[in-house]
Write a protein that binds this DNA or RNA. Structure first.
Lengths: 240, 240
DNA sequence: CGCGCCTTTGAAGAACTTCAATCTCGGTGG
DNA sequence: CCACCGAGATTGAAGTTCTTCAAAGGCGCG
């Protein structure tokens, strides 16, 4: 199921060299990581981890987008994280993974077997420090998302998701602060599972935002935002 | 507004010595922390931080319960974290705090000015390692909560909150795995703000759970759970 | 061309909120 | 001592939002 492993070899050429968990590493630390790293690729739609499975490796998203999801016994699903290039997957000192992880687009990972990675964390300072920073940022994002899930209307939820994706996709290309056009990396169903809505409500609100001129799209995935501030005003986060 | 500062002095006697951010410290590390620590107390209802304020100190909850909350410009509120004894507040390498923090009960904190605390993290391994562990646990909890907020019914939300509090309160007293009686540290309004509900819905569902014999209470805060498994079955997390 | 997947749209129904009234209890002052 | 007051909590009725159920449209692929 995995795609052909790409030829990337040196960390120097890596697109996430300065965002990922390795970004604070000194040359000697980087060499240790480079020794134990390996790449894996997944096609869009493929599972990367199943919740409850032994956590054999951890790693960084090099390219593509993947999701973390939690599932209730009766099948209800909630997405709990969106991993873009640079984001880290898995956690040290934990034998099993607690979420399903899915490749939303074609994904390439830079992986480390968990035990050797834990050794690097214990023996050197900068990987653990960077991982702490990244984890704190993710915690902030999760809390922001709790506000969206708990207190926003369907329309505000959609606007918040689109706005977040516009900003995060843009931040991957240095120079831009927010993209006015982007391709949604996820389906309507995944959007619904992010927002705690049904697919029908997502569709209706997307149509409503389109009718109101806040977004435009013909192909269902290619979104254009004529006025990013106007979209932001729909998120409920703006003063007035 | 702060209460009289209590007389706790030595870390050896500290009730959270083996849970908190200092729990992995070796004697020399503990001595560094002990040098810079100081205590603060807050009465129930008092604010500890306002979102956006400069983050002058970080610290651990020694006793009591406090909440993290986010607020939308129009006044909608969502609680995004519940801090029990041992939990850590604030984050290193961040100049401002992004949530309001409120004392739900009388609270005592063991505080460190942020800059010296950052120095300890940079100079010694075990505080940062422990903080990473704790942050990862909080991230797991936040994601669990996203599932509650996004996909559970009002009844399941209430059951989930009560169950979580029963388990977490019990885990503070070694030996118990879950308490069958406990005092709710929060008002109905705070419960509503945790669960993304209105106060009326919380009240109705509490009454319904009481009528169904899943919980009992006379005083509004003192909850008894006759059958913890039966309560868990109402959370939606059980197989069937 | 026809099938399947994803999406959109409509209509009916359920869950939760809103608005409003009442209740309980602890504290305060007459 | 007791009546009153206010904050928190409960309960009822009406209203809104979102979901559920149902049908149909669009697009890619064999």
């Amino acid at each position: 199921m995995t795609l052909a492993v790409p030829k990337l070899r040196s960390c120097d050429d890596c697109p996430i060299r300065y965002n990922a968990v390795c970004s604070k590493c000194e040359p000697s630390e980087l060499a240790q990581l480079e020794d134990i790293k390996y790449y894996r690729s997944y096609a869009a739609g493929q599972p990367i981890f199943f919740g409850g499975d032994p956590l054999e490796f951890v790693g960084s998203v090099v390219s593509g987008v993947s999701s973390l999801m939690r599932t209730l016994p009766d099948g209800r699903v909630q997405m709990v994280g969106l991993l873009l290039p640079g984001d880290f997957m898995g956690r040290p000192n934990r034998d099993t993974i607690d979420c399903d992880v899915v490749a939303e687009t074609d994904v390439m990972l830079c992986c480390f077997r968990r035990k050797p990675f834990e050794k690097v964390i214990n023996d050197t300072p900068h990987v653990g420090q960077r991982l702490l920073e990244m984890t704190l940022d993710e915690l902030d994002a999760a809390r922001e998302w709790m506000l969206v899930l708990g207190r926003k209307t369907a329309r505000e939820k959609i606007a918040s998701l689109l706005y977040m994706i516009a900003v995060r996709m843009a931040s991957l290309k240095p120079g831009e602060t927010a993209a006015t056009t982007f391709t949604l990396p996820i389906t309507r169903e995944t959007m619904a599972n992010y927002l705690g809505l049904t697919i029908e409500t997502v569709s209706r609100q997307m149509s409503a935002l389109k009718k109101d001129g806040l977004i435009a799209f013909d192909e269902r995935r290619d979104i254009r935002v004529p006025d990013l501030d106007a979209l932001k005003a729909e998120t409920g986060e703006e003063g007035f």
